[in-house]
């Protein structure tokens, strides 16, 4: 068995992405113990565009976001963020990469001992030299932009699921990141709130111009916000492109997933 120390040491410059690609995963393999989660996974996310990753539950979609953020190190392969290969970076240098990213978690991951305002202010306290007043002002602006004017003093447990998601978004965007990662933003929400969340992501994207990667299996919402859709199956991207290309894909795996059919090559 190869160990992490025996990582692939191929020349990273050979797979370096062009300027218009902000995020590139090149032939990434990732394991949890003996489980292979990603295998030969390659994905390009264009600068300033919304890329949606779709796929079955357990296909490794959320893991892709964690690889992009540096929370998981690939066993093999290369990960480029803004032209820099990060898979071999020491933790200290990864921190600098992560500061440029916002991550909105599936279950919001709000700090339950802090108020909403403190949650949103947290990245600013940690990474900026802004005064308490300036931070308070920025937090109020961000919360207001997401329709959360009056919740600053409340605790996360006092908010609905949809509001918690939006607070998670507020925390992710508060320091104007260049890259935004959304993990299952509409899961577990009713259709109206899911629409609100989708509109919020679109607004955030148009206001910040950030590169967004959204992981989801809600196809209606994916079609409405994605510039590029990539389908993940058994740890590999099997199809990617604009929505029309995905809709008309001849790949039977893609077609079965889009149609939600029980019959087909995808093992149930």
């Amino acid at each position: 068995m190869r160990t992490v120390l025996e990582r692939d040491d191929r020349d990273p410059t050979q797979a370096a992405p062009p300027d218009n690609v902000e995020i590139r995963l090149h032939d990434v393999e990732l394991r949890f113990g003996q489980k292979i989660v990603l295998s030969g996974c390659s994905l390009d996310c264009e600068r300033g565009k919304v890329t949606c990753v779709i796929g079955m539950s357990g296909a490794g979609k959320s893991t892709i976001l964690r690889v992009i953020n540096g929370l998981r190190r690939p066993y093999r392969g290369l990960v480029y963020i803004d032209g820099k290969e990060i898979s071999g970076l020491p933790e200290r240098e990864l921190i600098e990469v992560r500061k440029k990213m916002g991550f909105a978690f599936q279950y919001s991951a709000l700090f339950d001992s802090m108020t909403i305002a403190d949650n949103v202010a947290f990245p600013l306290h940690e990474h900026t030299s802004l005064t308490r007043t300036e931070i308070g002002k920025r937090v109020s602006e961000v919360l207001a932009s997401l329709g959360l004017e009056d919740v600053g003093d409340r605790l996360p447990s006092e908010l609905s699921g949809g509001m918690q998601k939006r607070v998670g978004f507020a925390r992710a965007i508060v320091n104007d990141p260049k890259i935004l990662l959304f993990d299952e933003p509409t899961s577990g929400l009713d259709p109206i709130i899911a629409n609100v969340i989708t509109d919020t992501i679109r607004d955030i994207h148009s206001n910040l111009g950030a590169t967004c990667v959204v992981v989801s299996h809600d196809l209606n919402y994916v079609y409405s916000m994605a510039d590029t859709i990539a389908m993940l199956f058994e740890g590999t991207i099997i199809e990617s492109g604009p929505a029309d290309k995905i809709r008309n894909s001849p790949n039977p795996l893609v077609q079965q997933f889009l149609q939600g059919s029980v019959l087909g090559p995808i093992p149930i």
């Binding site: 953020n69 929370l71 992560r98 978690f105 991951a109 339950d112 940690e126």
Partner: peptide, 17 residues
Amino acid sequence: SMVVTEQVEALSSMGVS
């Protein structure tokens, strides 16, 4: 509890130890 509710991962994702 913070680990299983992804709060610790959220800290790391922000570049906070």
